[in-house]
C-alpha cells in the first residue's frame, strides 16, 4: 500500500488546513496517550502534543523526515516530554508524587493519575527505555499494533521491531529484577493457570 509519507508530507508542505486536520486527528489520540504515559498529567500531555503539531505546521519546510512522519511525531513527543520533565524539574520522587496525587484527589481534582507501587515501578522502567525502543513498546503494548504495522508506520524493518521489543523486555526485566521474585511468587500460579 503506497500512500507514502512522501505524499502526505508534500501535502502538508502546502499548509493545507483541511489536510492538516486529517493528520492531526489521525495521530492526536496516540500521541496524547504517549505523552500522558510519560508525563502523567493530562493538561501537560495535551500541551506537548499541541506544541509538536505547531512545530510541524510552522517549520514544515525545514523539517527533515528521515524515516517517516509517524517516527518524527513520536520522537518529537518523546523528546519534548522528557525536556519538559527536565526543565520543570517535575521528576518527582515517589513520595512527593503520591502526596500530590492524593492531595489532588482530595481536592476533587482528578486530573492526576495515581498508581500502585508495582505500576509505578513498571512505569518508571518503561519511561527509561531509549527513544526508539520506547516508541515501539508504546505501539505494541498500548496501541496493540502487530510488528508488521509498527514497521510500516515507522518506516523500519520488522527485524528492527523484533530487536527493539526484545531489548525493551530485556531492559524492563533488568530494571525490575529485584522486585520480580516477589511478584513471581505472588502471581506465578495465577499466570500458569491461564492459557
Amino acid at each position: 500500500m503506497e500512500f507514502t509519507d512522501a505524499t502526505i508530507i508534500q501535502l502538508l508542505k502546502r499548509r493545507d488546513e483541511t489536510g492538516f486536520e486529517q493528520v492531526f486527528k489521525f495521530y492526536f489520540k496516540n500521541l496524547y496517550r504517549y505523552a500522558l504515559t510519560i508525563l502523567q498529567d493530562h493538561d501537560q500531555a495535551e500541551d506537548i502534543v499541541q506544541n509538536v503539531f505547531y512545530k510541524l505546521w510552522d517549520k514544515m519546510d525545514s523539517l527533515n523526515f528521515q524515516d517517516s512522519l509517524a517516527a518524527y511525531l513520536y520522537r518529537a513527543v518523546y523528546n519534548e516530554s522528557l525536556n519538559h520533565l527536565k526543565h520543570k524539574k517535575v521528576k518527582l520522587t515517589y513520595q512527593t508524587y503520591i502526596t500530590r496525587s492524593m492531595k489532588d484527589q482530595t481536592d476533587g481534582a482528578h486530573r492526576k493519575v495515581m498508581f500502585s507501587e508495582l505500576e509505578r515501578r513498571l512505569q518508571t522502567a518503561i519511561n527509561e527505555l531509549p527513544e526508539q525502543c520506547r516508541t515501539i513498546f508504546q505501539m505494541s503494548r498500548f496501541e496493540e499494533l502487530r510488528y508488521l504495522d509498527i514497521a510500516h508506520r515507522l518506516g523500519i524493518s520488522v527485524k528492527t521491531v523484533e530487536n527493539q521489543m526484545g531489548k525493551a523486555l530485556k531492559l524492563l526485566r533488568t530494571k525490575l529484577i529485584d522486585y520480580l521474585p516477589f511478584l513471581v511468587l505472588l502471581l506465578l500460579n495465577f499466570l500458569n493457570h491461564r492459557p
Binding site: 492526536f28 496524547y32 493519575v113 508495582l118 498500548f142 526485566r173 525490575l176 511478584l183 513471581v184
Partner: peptide
Amino acid sequence: NHFQLIWRESRHLYDNFNATDEQTD
C-alpha cells in the same frame, strides 16, 4: 515468566489514557 509478568502487568497501566473524539475535536 518474568517477560510474561512484565507484559501482562503493563497491560492495564494506562487504560484510562485514551482521548475521546470530543477531546480530539
